[in-house]
Design a protein around this nucleic acid. Structure first.
Length: 295
DNA sequence: GACCAGGTAGCAA
DNA sequence: TTGCTACATGGT
């Protein structure tokens, strides 16, 4: 086993592992000590994930981020948790808006994640009309049923399935696993990626709105899901997914940003939330409004 | 038993 | 283009 430590004091803006991993941006991490999204975890709880069959777990103890893996995973940890983001500068540069300030103040140390593209794509296809905890359950089920089993330090972990593995599933199987009407979307999208026609990561090379259009060619992916993939996996920090919570925030706090269509409203709210890092702002607002957690 | 949850596809006008 | 509506499932 390889291990390492990263003092969180060294990170601009700090790191709140709980809020980063349990705010509904990522469904590819699990908490070792029980169910996520219900109550606050033990202070030193481990979180684990598997990336390209490499197991990884992290926790914070005494203000130090500890990681354990089968290899030197520090670069991976830094990438997945975006530890090199200058969070303090991002917060400072945010627009002077009361609701946004409240959200940033209440959740200090929450960072965006950078998850693997395919797992993110499927996670958010599953997210349609679904509660955060159930999305997590669905993704965990897919990993358990179709992903590689990874043994690490006596524990059994599961990698999220590859496109090939998921394309081998049938719609009937996925309905049996509780995916409902999302089942054919997941199978067909997995087939598209497995057949190498299109790949979500290819959107990286495009301009933001073109990238969103590109992702919409996957089955079960509309503007909102595409924005989630762009924001939580592909580094488009300006992407603002217009979900139910953000739409209600627009209605209550930024009514002039409602321009009817998704594309036009997206441009307006993106501007209002600071442009370049509007997606960061969106993620804070989403978590703040959804949990009602004021700090 | 309604009502809701990080929406999208398919179809009509 | 824009505006419906059906779509699965589990929790409150």
């Amino acid at each position: 086993m390889e291990t390492g430590t990263i003092p969180t004091d060294d990170l601009s803006g700090g790191l709140d592992l709980y809020r980063t991993l349990e705010s509904g941006q990522t469904y590819l991490w699990r908490r070792a000590d029980g169910d996520m999204y219900t109550g606050t975890p033990a202070p030193e709880a481990w979180y684990y994930t598997v990336v390209d069959d490499t197991p990884l777990r992290v926790r914070i103890r005494d203000g130090v981020l500890e990681w354990e893996s089968t290899t030197d995973a520090e670069p991976l940890v830094r990438r997945l948790l975006r530890l090199d983001d200058d969070l303090e500068a991002i917060v400072d540069a945010a627009p002077d808006d009361p609701l946004l300030r409240e959200a940033y103040d209440a959740h200090r140390g929450m960072r965006l994640v950078e998850d693997p593209p395919f797992g993110t794509l499927v996670s958010f296809i599953c997210s349609a009309q679904m509660r955060v905890s159930r999305i997590h359950d669905m993704v965990s089920t897919l990993a358990r049923e179709y992903g590689d089993e990874i043994r690490f330090d006596g524990e059994q972990y599961y990698a999220f399935p590859t496109p090939d593995q998921l394309a081998a599933a049938t719609e009937a199987e996925l309905r049996e696993l509780g995916l409902g009407y999302r089942a054919p979307y997941v199978v067909r999208t997995a087939e598209m990626v497995a057949e190498d026609e299109v790949h979500p990561a290819a959107a990286r090379d495009l301009e933001y709105e073109a990238a969103r259009e590109y992702l919409c060619q996957f089955v079960g992916v509309g503007d909102k899901v595409a924005d989630c993939v762009l924001l939580f996996s592909l580094g488009f920090d300006e992407a603002v997914p217009l979900d139910t919570w953000i739409k209600s925030a627009i209605a209550d706090h930024y009514p002039d940003c409602d321009r009817g269509s998704y594309a036009a409203t997206s441009r307006a709210i993106r501007g209002r939330l600071g442009g370049e890092y509007a997606g960061y702002a969106q993620t804070y607002l989403f978590h703040h409004l959804r949990t009602g957690d004021d700090g």
